[in-house]
Nucleic acid binder design. Structure first.
Length: 585
RNA sequence: GCGCCCGUAGCUCAGCUGGAUAGAGUACAGGCCUCCGAAGCCUGUGGUCGGUGGUUCGAAUCCACUCGGGCGCACCA
């Protein structure tokens, strides 16, 4: 319908140009009206043309209307306000949406606008050093929802988790596990202040190692601690202390045993994260190992490629990438003076590989604290001859946690954090998924745990689910009262749906596909959330104002078609958000 | 100091590729169940859209400056 209006307007404006009243044609903006009193669609073109036409906007609007061809679907055209041209459509036009929804069912709203373009979305990618906490939950919910939305509009989406299984943190983890293992084997040994100290899962992993490998990895406290620099608690440096312990663990255990412990930690935690996310309705096509980049020599290859292109120089024993040539604020080290690659070097190789794997577009969802990292990754891709505009880095702001009115500090290392699993258990997966995508991603979010837990019934998710359950309930009542729902008869009598509540609901249903499209293309799941809330509101109001189970079969069937269509849209929308659409609650 | 994000109703937030009287939830005040689920509905109170200047027929929306708040500026990951 929008296309029809656009076509008509274009013809009219071409005519005005032919009449040399105006010279240039502006981009037409035809939008759905917010207020039904303004008709169904509106266009502001008259105001845009007023100046070059040398007439008032309303006069221009009148000329355009006079020039417009007639169309049987348009029953009225009005000039309103400063010069809006409002289009009123024939009722049959909007009523057709009901049949359309019921015919298409679960697939209603879907489109092929994405043209099967191959997209990768990488998100969460938290270090595998512990369970996910609530901060990761926002990225998880946002990424998974975005993937659903994009698939619904026809993109071919893969979700990926980048597993940071290389680097110092992982060594600290492995060493922490080993030390707890020693303690489990009655070795009296101090625990580093900088290690994974109070985490329960470290003990669990240590205990299962003991069960499986008995005392194979036991060394005396003396051997372990000999000549180790003092920890912070004894006036030393905690970083030097723990690095020395890592080296000691490697040398005393030998590579194979050290790797056994390392792997035990990594695998246990990754499996825990994977399961946690699955339960949260977040599924990945790929779990991509950082270590595998080194194993396949891709990091060196990437650095070499940069080097060959002349973007690398040596200084103070390290290799630097001249990222300032590509807009970064300073150059970055890729190979340290000790010969080891930096995390950034891995990331260059990783992103290069994403493109080499054939994705047309790559989306990274990062925590906002990584925003300073964006220019250097884009710089590297440009330097490597890739089109950096095909990499979208979406920054998700933090969800600040509040408990008893106070900010909860979240740190894996300090051991005081709320896990995603705990949150799911307390507020439920539906509410958690919904809550996280209610706000647009660049909005800072305050997450009051007490409110989420104690008043979870106030969560808007229940309001929407209730609308769905309510319709299901009415449908059930219908058969209990020995009525049938004859939808064909309903379609024949949709013109009985003339109440304000009904026309409002119908035009809201009509807007669903547009909202879905916009939410997917703008990466704004919250648009869908707000839409569903508005739809639920209209349904609840309608329910309170009118009876659905009425004696007049024609009106009854028509109303049941309408609420069935509403139920379908509620279901489709909630499903995309990863939230259930319950029949009963 | 430099950079990114955010300042809209008491609180939590929509609206931001410029459009018609700035919206919702919550809180507060009142009303609605012999009738399909009251986890609901209806009515009302509540705003210098942080501030100043600019662009425009038109600015919460764009631009500049400015004041608040958050985050980041490693040979850590």
């Amino acid at each position: 319908m929008k296309q029809t209006i656009e076509k008509l307007l274009n013809q009219a404006i071409d005519q005005l140009i032919a009449d040399s009243m105006i010279e240039t044609k502006p981009a037409l903006q035809i939008t759905r009206t917010k207020d039904a009193a303004h008709g169904d669609f509106t266009c502001n073109v008259a105001m845009m043309l007023a100046k070059q036409a040398g007439k008032s906007p309303r006069d221009v609007a009148q000329i355009i209307i006079d020039t417009l061809d007639t169309n049987e679907s348009i029953i009225k055209i009005e000039i309103a306000g400063p010069g809006f041209i409002n289009f009123f459509l024939a009722q049959e036009n909007t009523l057709s949406i009901i049949k359309n929804i019921l015919d298409k069912g679960d697939t209603f709203g879907q489109s092929d606008a994405g043209k099967k373009e191959k997209i990768q979305i990488e998100f969460v990618s938290a270090n595998p050093t512990g369970p996910l906490h609530v901060g990761h939950g926002r990225g998880a919910a946002y990424g998974a929802t975005l993937a659903s939305l994009m698939r619904a509009v026809g993109f071919d989406v893969d979700c990926e988790y980048y597993v940071n299984d290389a680097g110092r943190q992982m060594n600290i983890l492995a060493t922490s596990i080993w030390l707890r293992y020693l303690q489990e084997n009655a070795v009296d040994i101090p625990f580093p202040s900088n290690g994974y100290k109070s985490e329960e899962y470290i003990y669990d992993i240590a205990r299962s190692l003991k069960q499986k490998y008995k005392d194979n990895f036991v060394r005396t406290a003396e051997t372990v601690m000999r000549d180790i620099p003092a920890d912070e608690a004894e006036g030393g440096d905690k970083e030097i202390h723990i690095d020395a312990l890592i080296d000691r663990a490697k040398s005393l255990l030998g590579n194979e045993d050290y790797q056994t412990i390392f792997k035990a930690g990594l695998d246990t935690i990754i499996e825990d994260i994977r399961q946690d996310l699955e339960e949260f309705g977040v599924h990945y096509e790929h779990w991509y190992s950082e270590q595998s980049l080194a194993d396949r020599d891709l990091i060196n290859a990437a650095v070499k490629q940069l080097q060959d292109a002349g973007h690398i120089y040596e200084e103070k024993g390290a290799l630097w990438f001249r990222s300032t040539d590509f807009g970064d604020e300073k150059d970055r080290v890729v190979i340290r003076d000790n010969g080891q690659g930096t995390y950034f070097a891995s990331d260059i190789a990783y992103h290069l590989d994403k493109f080499d794997r054939g994705y047309n577009r790559v989306i990274n969802i990062w925590g906002a604290d990584h925003h300073g990292y964006v220019p250097r990754v884009k710089a590297a891709l440009t330097a490597l001859g890739k089109d950096e505009s095909k990499l979208d880095i979406l920054l998700v702001q933090f969800a600040n946690l509040y408990r008893h009115g106070e900010r909860v500090q979240m740190s894996t290392r300090s051991g005081s954090f709320v896990t995603l699993r705990e949150l799911r258990k307390e507020v439920g997966t539906d509410a958690a998924r919904f809550f996280y995508v209610m706000r647009k991603c660049e909005q800072h979010m305050d997450f009051d745990l007490d409110l989420a837990k104690s008043q979870s019934n106030d969560n808007p998710v229940y309001y929407i689910q209730y609308a769905h359950a309510r319709i299901c309930s009415v449908l059930a009542q219908l058969s209990e009262k020995q009525f049938n729902h004859d939808s064909e008869n309903g379609f024949r009598h949709l013109n009985l749906l003339t109440e304000k509540h009904e026309t409002d609901l119908i035009s809201k249903l009509d807007a669903y596909a547009d909202i879905l499209h916009k939410a997917a293309f703008n990466a704004d799941p919250h648009l869908l959330v707000h839409y569903l809330r508005e739809l639920a509101t209209l349904l609840h109001s309608y329910y309170n104002a009118h009876q659905f189970i009425i004696d007049d079969a024609n009106g009854r069937d028509a109303r049941f078609n309408l609420i069935s269509a509403t139920k379908q849209i509620l279901n489709n929308g909630l499903t995309l958000l990863g939230v259930s659409a319950p029949i009963k609650m």
